[in-house]
Design a protein around this nucleic acid. Structure first.
Lengths: 167, 167
DNA sequence: ATAGTCAGTTCCTTTTTGGAACCTGTCAAG
DNA sequence: CTTGACAGGTTCCAAAAAGGAACTGACTAT
């Protein structure tokens, strides 16, 4: 499989990564969530080459993660803003931050902290079950093939003949 | 900035992405969470080139996301298993799946579903606040510079002089 | 008239992938 | 005891992507 075919894979991770899975895209989105909107702001904060930045922003717009909205005419200048689809990536960024905070900090500690506006406290994201509301970890979930995928894609899940689970 | 310097950035997203942020790593990890452990299984399921697979697995081991454990000697064969650090990436994968399920499915619907073992239901991951337990969305969080980063890194957060937020 | 800003393009070099073939150690069959 | 298979790589080369720097175009400010 080559990278460009990834969005046709019968797997939501693969399809999501077809959009946000390259080296720079999620860092660009991190900056979007911090309020960055303009080409030159991205460039100077990220140290990314203009060429790559142009390309990534274009792809994010094509995939409806960002939109271009004009903030002046004469000359026309547009800024990039998160769409609802883009905002929906927030949990992904939050979990990455949390993982980085937990496992990758140096002696100076956590660079940025999240404050929950509603309750006013410093917070960490906790992943919970939409049904019962309890916290969910890797060991608490099982994966099944979706209802319409019966025989076409049983091999989405590797066989577990050898008996063990992700442990 | 070039890619290899990313792990020194004062940002947990950047540091996390220095480990898992390339085109293939998160897909490899998806398979790990599904129970895949061996080189040739990864290769045939992913269609990745052996060269890249070797490299990514090695980096994941170096970063303590996976460990190699022998499953036979003569000849020595090892399989790759998630460490605790690796298991801690589960929320990232879950959120990606959820986002892909929400925005990237085709007419056949969701390929894989998560079942919460504890309550037995099909579930979606919900991100909540570790302090108050309520659901958290992009609009509910504010970011602040960490306690030890005062003046060295105020520019971690772009100035919001122009007034608006990620909206 | 000169300099500066923003959002790109163009051109060229260096890295990273993709693809296929080859290597190494061990067993198993004929 | 030669041939094949298997697992897990490594080597080689061409193609694609990224890095770096300079250039463009439509303005605006001095």
């Amino acid at each position: 499989m080559r990278w460009e075919e990834l969005d046709q894979e019968p797997c939501s991770v693969a399809r999501a990564l077809a959009v946000v899975g390259d080296r720079w895209t999620l860092i660009i989105l991190r900056d979007c969530f911090l309020g960055v909107r303009r080409f030159d702001q991205f460039e100077s904060r990220l140290g990314i080459t203009r060429h790559v930045l142009t390309d990534r922003l274009k792809k994010l717009v094509e995939n409806d993660v960002l939109t271009k909205v004009p903030y002046q005419e004469k000359p026309l200048r547009e800024e990039y803003r998160l769409t609802e689809k883009g905002l929906a990536l927030h949990p992904v960024i939050m979990s990455l931050v949390h993982w980085g905070n937990t496992y990758m900090t140096d002696e100076r500690g956590v660079p940025l902290v999240h404050i929950h506006k509603t309750c006013g406290h410093r917070m960490a994201p906790v992943t919970t079950c939409s049904k019962c509301g309890e916290e969910v970890t890797a060991r608490d979930v099982r994966v099944e093939v979706g209802p319409n995928w019966g025989r076409t894609a049983r091999d989405l899940i590797p066989n577990r003949a050898s008996g063990q689970q992700t442990k």
